[in-house]
Design a protein around this nucleic acid. Structure first.
Lengths: 197, 197
DNA sequence: CGGATCGTTGATCAACTTCAACGGTCGTGG
DNA sequence: CCACGACCGTTGAAGTTGATCAACGATCCG
C-alpha cells in the first residue's frame, strides 16, 4: 500500500518534470505516508497548517464554516492533487479552513522544513510548486468568473464535466456547497437536466 | 512626471524588501514608463501579454467579455498595484482578458525577458513576486467565498471599505460588474444603504 | 434494529434580473 | 463654444432564480 502511494507520487513527478530515480528516492524520503478514514480531519480551523498534502487515493475537501454555521466547500482534492492552507503554511498563522476526508483516503505529506529544503536544493521542485500556485490562482480566477456569468445549472454541468472521475463519490450536498447553492436547488437542477434528456 | 513614477516604484520596493539605492537603479533600468489615457487599452483579448504592469497613478481594470457581450470586471488596479494576464505572460498563449484605463493612468512596465533576468539574479525579486502570486490567489479564494456566503449588499459594503481610496473614481456599472450584479441592482442597494443611515 | 443523515418534493418567499423610461452629464464635432 | 448624441445612474413594474421551511422515504452505520 505504501509503495503504491509512493509510486503514484513518482508517476506524478515523472509526468511533470525530468527526475531521475535517485532524485525521486531522495525526495521521497521527506514524505510521510498516512491513511485518513472517511470524515476524519487532517486540519481544523485555528490550527497552523504545517504540511502540504498529496492525495494518492480517495478524496479530501477543504471548507470553511461561516457565522451562521453553514459549511462552504472551497476545494476537492482527489488522487494526484495537492491540498493545504497555503496562507497558514507560508506565514505560520492560524488556519481559517478545515480539511477532512470525504472517503477513506491515503496521502503523502511533507513538512514545511523539508519543503523549503527541497526548494533550495532543487530549482525544478521550486518551479513545479510555482506552477501549481499559478494554476491554482488561475482556477480561482475562472471560478470567480463562473459566478459572474453562469447560472447554477451551468456551473453544475461544468463541475460534473471537470470532476467526472470523482463527482460520483462526492455527496450532493457538498457539490451544492461548492457551487454556492442549497442542496434542494441542486436536486431540482439535476431533475431539470434529466427531464430534458 | 517620470521621476515621480519611479519614486513610487522605489517606495513600493523599499516598503516590501531590503533594497539599496544602487540595486533599485539597476532594477529601474528594466522598466519603461508609459501614460495611458482614460478608456485606452493596454491589452486586448487574443494578444499575448508580454509585460507586467505597475500602476503609479490612476487606475486600470481587467475584464472579460462573455458570449452575450457582457463585460465582467476581474480586477481593478489602482496606484501601487501590479496587473497582467499571468497565464498569457507565463505560457505565451493568447490572452483571454482585456486591460484598459478607467482614468488617465501612468504605469511602469517590465518585459518578460527582464522579469526573468531579475528573477535569476535576485532571489528577493523572485520572492516578492512569489508573495504577490500567493496573495493574489488568497484574494481570489476570499472572493469565491464571498459569493458562497455573502449577499450582494454585503459584498458591496466590503468592496467600498477595501477600495475606499479609489472606489469614488470607479463608475458604478463597473463596480456592479465586479460584484456580479446589474447596475440597477447596485443602484437600489446604494439607495437601501443610504435610506438606513 | 433504530437514529441520523441524505436526497427529494411541494409551497412560499426573498433577492436579483429584465425591460422600459427619464433626467443629468460628458465629450465631441460642427 | 454650443448642441447633440451617447452614456450613466436611477426608478418602476414584472419576471426569474434560487432560498427557506416543512415533510417524507431511503439508506447508511453503529
Amino acid at each position: 500500500m505504501i509503495d503504491g502511494a509512493f509510486n503514484i507520487l513518482k508517476l506524478y513527478f515523472k509526468n511533470k518534470i525530468e527526475i531521475s530515480d535517485e532524485e525521486f528516492d531522495y525526495w521521497k524520503s521527506f514524505f510521510i505516508h498516512k491513511e485518513i478514514k472517511k470524515n476524519k480531519f487532517l486540519l481544523t480551523e485555528e490550527d497552523i497548517c504545517r504540511h502540504i498534502y498529496f492525495v494518492t487515493s480517495g478524496c479530501l475537501r477543504s471548507f470553511t464554516i461561516d457565522k451562521n454555521g453553514n459549511e462552504h466547500v472551497i476545494q476537492f482534492a482527489p488522487e494526484n492533487w495537492w491540498i493545504s492552507d497555503l496562507n497558514s503554511f507560508s506565514n505560520e498563522v492560524s488556519s481559517l479552513i478545515n480539511i477532512d476526508a470525504i472517503v477513506d483516503t491515503t496521502i503523502l505529506k511533507i513538512e514545511k522544513e523539508y519543503y523549503n529544503k527541497l526548494s533550495i536544493e532543487f530549482p525544478k521542485w521550486n518551479n513545479l510548486f510555482m506552477n501549481l500556485l499559478q494554476n491554482s490562482r488561475g482556477a480561482y480566477e475562472r471560478r470567480v468568473l463562473s459566478y459572474l456569468n453562469s447560472s447554477a445549472e451551468e456551473r453544475y454541468i461544468h463541475f460534473i464535466k471537470h470532476f467526472s472521475s470523482i463527482a460520483p463519490q462526492i455527496p450532493q450536498h457538498m457539490i451544492a456547497s461548492y457551487l454556492g447553492i442549497t442542496p434542494e436547488s441542486l436536486s431540482r437542477i439535476r431533475k431539470h437536466i434529466s427531464d430534458n434528456k
